[in-house]
Amino acid sequence: MNVLDKNLQVASDTETPVASARIRQGKLVSSVITLAHGGGGKAMRDLIDDVFIDAFSNSSLNTLEDQARFQLSDLAQYGDRLAMTTDSYVIDPIFFPGGDIGKLAICGTVNDLAVGGAKPLYLTCAMIIEEGMQVSTLRQIVQSMADTAKAAGVLIVTGDTKVVERGSCDKIFINTAGIGVINKDYQLGVHKAQAHDRILVNGYLGDHGAAILNARGDMHLSSPIESDCAPLHELIAVLLKAAPNTRFIRDATRGGIASVLNEIADASKCGIEILETETPIRNEVKGFCEILGLDPLYLANEGKLVAVVPEAETAAALAAMRAHPLGRDAADIGCVLEDGRAGRVHMQTSFGGKRIVDMLVGEQLPRIC
Rank of each mutant, 00 (worst) to 15 (best):
D218Q: 14
S350A: 15
F52G: 04
I274G: 01
I236N: 08
D251P: 01
A237S: 14
A19N: 11
L239V: 08
V163G: 00
N111I: 05
P224M: 09
Q194S: 10
E165T: 14
L292H: 06
M127E: 07
M1F: 08
F95G: 07
D329T: 12
C229E: 05
S222N: 12
E15I: 14
A118R: 03
G255R: 01
Q348L: 10
S259G: 06
A126H: 11
F351A: 15
V135P: 09
G39D: 10
D46L: 00
C289Y: 03
S30E: 14
L4N: 02
G287A: 11
C369V: 14
Y122I: 10
C270D: 03
V154F: 00
V3S: 15
T279M: 08
A230Y: 08
T34C: 09
Q364T: 07
G203Y: 00
E15Y: 13
V115D: 06
L113F: 08
G206P: 00
E290C: 13
C169N: 13
L121G: 00
I172Y: 05
A146C: 02
V164W: 02
I23M: 12
K42W: 01
I48L: 13
K119T: 11
G256S: 07
A126R: 12
V306P: 00
L297M: 11
G178H: 11
D332Q: 04
K354L: 07
V154D: 02
G132S: 09
D218E: 14
G26P: 08
G180E: 06
T349A: 03
A243E: 08
E284I: 12
A43Q: 11
Q134Y: 12
N7D: 15
I356M: 04
L75T: 01
R198F: 00
M321S: 00
A316F: 09
L337N: 01
E130R: 13
Y78C: 08
T109R: 04
A267N: 02
I291M: 13
G117M: 10
E363Q: 12
R69Y: 09
E278R: 15
A316E: 14
M1C: 05
Y204P: 03
M44W: 02
E263S: 05
V285T: 15
V357W: 04
D147W: 07
G343P: 03
D251C: 02
D50W: 07
L4D: 04
G38I: 12
R247K: 12
N175Q: 15
L240S: 11
N2T: 10
I291Q: 13
D332M: 03
P231R: 06
N301D: 15
S168Y: 03
S136G: 09
G117N: 08
L232T: 01
K150D: 11
A195H: 05
I291V: 15
K42S: 10
I33M: 11
H196Q: 13
K192N: 15
R69W: 08
S144V: 08
I333A: 03
D87L: 06
G180Y: 11
N301R: 02
L155K: 01
D50P: 08
N245W: 02
I368K: 05
F70D: 05
R22G: 09
T161G: 04
T158A: 15
L121A: 00
L221F: 13
T158G: 02
A83D: 01
G206K: 09
A193W: 03
Y78D: 02
T176M: 15
I236G: 03
E338K: 14
G40E: 05
D54N: 11
E311M: 10
I225A: 05
D5L: 07
M1G: 12
E311G: 00
D54V: 06
V154T: 02
D147R: 14
T124M: 08
R166E: 04
